[in-house]
Structures are given as structure tokens and as C-alpha cells.
Design a protein around this nucleic acid. Structure first.
Length: 429
RNA sequence: GGAGGUGUCGCCUAGUGGCCUAUGGCGCCCGCCUGCUAAGCGGGUUGGGGGCUCAAACCCCCUCGCGGGUUCAAAUCCCGCCACCUCCGCCA
């Protein structure tokens, strides 16, 4: 959730953010009104409660008839306290609901508008030439079938549309890619993690995934658990309700997990191959850092993503996502999109979001800092959280297609060879 | 899945309806004392929220695993849930 103090002090900034996202500005005023009502009800409850407590002491001290008289007097007060408390709870819940409805305030510089209003930050690498002897690029599924690497038909037979098997070198290639990602992250100081992929509702809600896009998420009704679409969810929950010590720098984790997405509402899109699937694997970076360090950390995560893309030798571009295309938790997002030769366009391979203090505030993740007055007192404040993709199953698409050769074989990028143990993938008979 | 037990502040712990505004110890922080260190002495040490403030000081409310209930009053009594421990059963 957003910072209530900021909302009170500068509601116009939040309205501007809502406009940039194409969202409802009046939500800001509803929160402010709910806040006023909430505080008034708290004051009333606390006044009555304080009176009840002090009168209660007199009851405890009294004896006999005097006590009976006091009891009668205080009984009615008890009812008033109960009513005031119920009122206060109700106003508090209303306020909370309104506040949680507001997505993170976008950062300065984020392009306003929707999905197509992104800004290209840079393009890196040269788009490959069609190998001599080919009339057209083979797409990743053709290649995957030639190489005995991808079996979509049987994936569908076993689990339905958007499921697949990675077979033989396909399975090995994915493991190699993900292992390389974990190795690089570990070398860079990230703590490798294998995370739960089923989480409680409060964790899913805390990361901001249960808002407008709740229909994207698998829910196990029997157990009231959610299947995560990324290890970001579990990694954000990891330190929930904790007070962190960030005096030695950010806490950085690299989560390896299966990821599950319903892909509701994407019927007909990317139906071929493994570009858009219900289940895949991912290595995800996740950082907890101080709020003032978040922008720099965001650039760092982006740099790690770009190094990873360079290591697999695929051309890509970096885009600064428009406000309307940000998730509710993100204040800024950069996507790296790799060139996909068969489609003649760039497709998203990584996404790094700066969630500032939005998730931490919901999940109650704080750090201890000196009080503002410079005394020896300390206080707590929410930290910033950031996430970014280091590798996913989808990367196989870009790797296979960009490194394909005329005979259907695929050159293995240099950096991946130690992890795969092969220089080239060759078609099976 | 069944039976029993436990859950109090960073850790350990006292606490059986109202002098609990939660005890004591350890650890930690500040100060005093002291050739240095150790010891000793004194003070501080959960978190959240509301009021008043430019901001503090200060005042108040909530917080004894979580949520309900009983009561004028709940750490304490009752109900539900969760986590952990012991045992039984089942299982990849």
C-alpha cells in the first residue's frame, strides 16, 4: 500500500500518478474521507475506553453496597465502549480497503499511458541474418521438435493446452540455463533460494497480485492457498513481519521455482510453442534495500539481466514500461525483450520492478533507523523491495531461434557450454 | 487423520479474574566507578495507532500465537483456528 503520510501531505502527486496509469483519481479523495472518518471513530472509542478503565479501578477498590452501585453505573458504559469499538473497527476496515485499492505511486520519468506507450531505452546486439540455405526462420517449436527438445503434443495430451514436456537436450538446456543464472547470481552475492510455490492469501495479497489481475492466479480452494506465478511472492513473504538490518547493504536473494499462470483472457495469443504457458521455471532476483537506494538497486538488477542476456548472445532491447502497464506494486518497470527471428519482433524475456516501499508496507517489512530528531532513539520504517528476472523457460525460444543453423542444428552460446556440456545441439534422426 | 502437551518482550522466565500500568534473569544500549579489561552500581531496552505539536516532550488506546465469546473488568475463564513438541495411524 502507498504511504498514507504522502497521501495526506501531497494528494495531488497521487492523483497525478493515477492519471498516468489511467486509473480513477477520485479514489484518492475516498481514501482521505475514509481516513477522517476512521480517526474520528478512533478518538471516540479511545475516550470511552479510557473512562471505562479508570472507572473499573474504582469498582475493584469498592466493597459492598458501594460496589453494587458502581457496577450498575459502569455497565452501560461497557455497552458504549463495545459499540464505539465496533464502529471504529468498521471505519478502519473501510479505510483499509480504500487505501489498498490505490496502486503504487509511479516514479518521476515513467512514461504515462498504456501498454504501447513504452519508451525504448536502448537496443543491444545485432539482429541475426537468415542462415544461407533457409527460406525462412524455423520457429522454436520446429527446432525443438527437430532436436527432440520440446514435446507440446504430449504436454497437451497429459495436461491440456499451454502445457509441454521438455525432453532430452531440451530438459538439459533449461537446467543449464537456470543453473548458469543461479551460479552468476551467487557469484554476485545473491543468496540462492528454492522457494515454496504455494502461499497463503495474505502473502499473495501483500505482493499486490490479488488486485485487478487476480484471475491470472491459480487458487486451491480446498486449502485456501495460491500457486505463485513467480518466486517473487515467496521471497517477498520471506521477511514479512520482520525488522531487517540493512546496515551492511541490501539483502539479495535469487529464487529458483516453478511458476504457474492461468493465462486467463489470453485465448488465441501465443498458442504455438512455449512462449506463453501455464507452468515454467524461473530464476528471480529479489532485493530488500533502503528506500533511498531503490533506484540505484533497480539499475543494478537491470544490469544483471543484461549481462545474462549478453551471456546467451541474443539481441535485445530495454524498454521503460508505461505507467498503465505497471503492476499494482511497481513504481517503475524495465523489461528486456529479446529478438525472436521467426516473429521478426522483440518479446519480453525479463522484467525488473522497483516496488519502492509498497509491498513492504503491506507485508510489514521494516528496518530500524535513528529517530528524525537526532537523539539516540530509533524508529522503524518500511524498506524497498525490487525484483527482476534472471532466466526463464521462455529464454529457450530466443536461444534456439537466434542460434539456429541451416541444417536445423543450434549453436550453444559460449557461456552456456560449461553448464550444458555441448557445443551444438543436433537434430535427432 | 487421531490423542495429549506447549505458545508471555531479541532469548529464557514469573504469572490461576481487579495493586499486571506484565515479573526476574541473560543479551544489548547509555552513564557512573575503575591504570586497561573484567567485575560492581544506576538507568534504558516489543511493536502498532490516536491526540497535541513546525517537530519533540507529553497524554491516551491497542499489543501475552491469531480470531471470536463470557464479564463492569481477561495473559488468566470458554469456543474456533494456527504453529511447534510427544505418541498412534496412513503415505510418495
Amino acid at each position: 500500500m502507498i504511504d498514507l503520510r504522502q497521501l495526506r501531505d501531497d494528494p495531488e502527486a497521487v492523483r497525478a500518478s493515477q492519471r498516468a496509469r489511467g486509473e480513477d483519481e477520485s479514489a484518492v479523495d475516498r481514501v482521505l474521507a475514509a481516513d477522517v472518518a476512521r480517526r474520528a471513530s478512533i478518538a471516540e472509542f479511545e475516550r470511552l475506553r479510557a473512562e471505562q478503565k479508570s472507572r473499573g479501578k474504582a469498582v475493584a477498590a469498592a466493597k459492598g453496597e458501594e460496589k453494587q452501585a458502581l457496577l450498575a453505573a459502569v455497565k452501560e458504559l461497557s455497552e458504549q465502549v463495545k459499540a464505539a469499538q465496533a464502529e471504529s473497527d468498521a471505519r478502519g476496515a473501510e479505510f483499509d480497503e480504500e487505501l489498498r485499492r490505490i496502486p503504487n505511486v509511479v516514479l518521476d520519468g515513467v512514461p504515462p499511458g498504456g501498454e504501447d506507450d513504452y519508451v525504448v531505452v536502448r537496443e543491444v546486439g545485432r539482429v541475426p541474418e537468415l542462415p544461407e540455405g533457409l527460406d525462412a526462420w524455423r520457429d522454436h517449436l520446429d527446432l525443438g521438435e527437430l532436436l527432440g527438445a520440446i514435446d507440446v503434443e504430449r504436454g497437451t495430451k497429459v495436461s491440456g493446452s499451454r502445457f509441454y514436456f521438455l525432453t532430452g537436450v531440451g530438459a538439459l538446456l533449461e537446467l543449464a540455463l537456470l543453473n548458469m543464472a543461479v551460479a552468476r547470481a551467487t557469484a554476485a552475492g545473491f543468496t540462492p533460494m528454492i522457494t515454496p510455490t504455494l502461499v497463503k492469501p495474505e502473502v499473495m495479497a501483500g505482493t499486490g497480485f490479488l488486485g485487478a489481475h487476480a484471475s491470472e492466479i491459480y487458487h486451491l480452494a480446498e486449502d485456501d492457498l495460491y500457486l505463485t506465478g513467480t518466486s517473487e511472492v515467496a521471497l517477498a513473504g520471506y521477511h514479512s513481519d520482520e525488522i531487517l538490518d540493512l546496515s551492511n547493504g541490501p539483502k539479495r536473494y535469487a529464487g529458483w521455482s516453478a511458476c504457474y499462470r492461468r493465462e486467463a483472457g489470453s485465448y488465441g495469443k501465443d498458442t504455438r510453442g512455449i512462449i506463453r504457458v501455464h507452468q515454467f521455471h524461473k530464476v528471480e532476483m529479489f532485493s530488500y534495500c533502503r528506500a533511498e537506494d531503490a533506484a540505484a538497486e533497480h539499475q543494478r538488477l537491470l544490469a544483471f539481466e543484461e549481462e545474462m542476456l549478453a551471456a546467451v548472445e541474443v539481441p535485445y532491447r530495454v524498454i521503460d514500461t508505461a505507467a498503465g502497464d505497471l503492476g499494482s506494486s511497481a513504481a517503475r518497470k524495465f523489461d528486456c525483450e529479446a529478438w525472436v527471428p521467426s516473429q521478426g519482433r522483440y518479446r519480453e524475456l525479463t522484467s525488473t520492478s522497483n516496488c519502492t516501499t509498497f509491498q513492504a508496507r503491506r507485508l510489514s517489512i521494516r528496518e530500524r533507523v535513528p529517530a528524525a530528531d537526532g537523539s539516540q532513539q530509533t524508529t522503524t520504517r518500511p524498506v524497498a523491495t525490487l525484483n527482476g528476472t534472471l532466466a526463464t523457460t521462455r529464454w529457450l525460444v530466443a536461444i534456439l531461434e537466434n542460434h539456429q543453423q541451416a541444417d536445423g542444428s543450434v549453436r550453444v552460446p559460449e557461456a552456456l557450454r560449461p553448464f550444458l556440456g555441448l557445443d551444438v545441439l543436433t537434430p535427432v534422426a
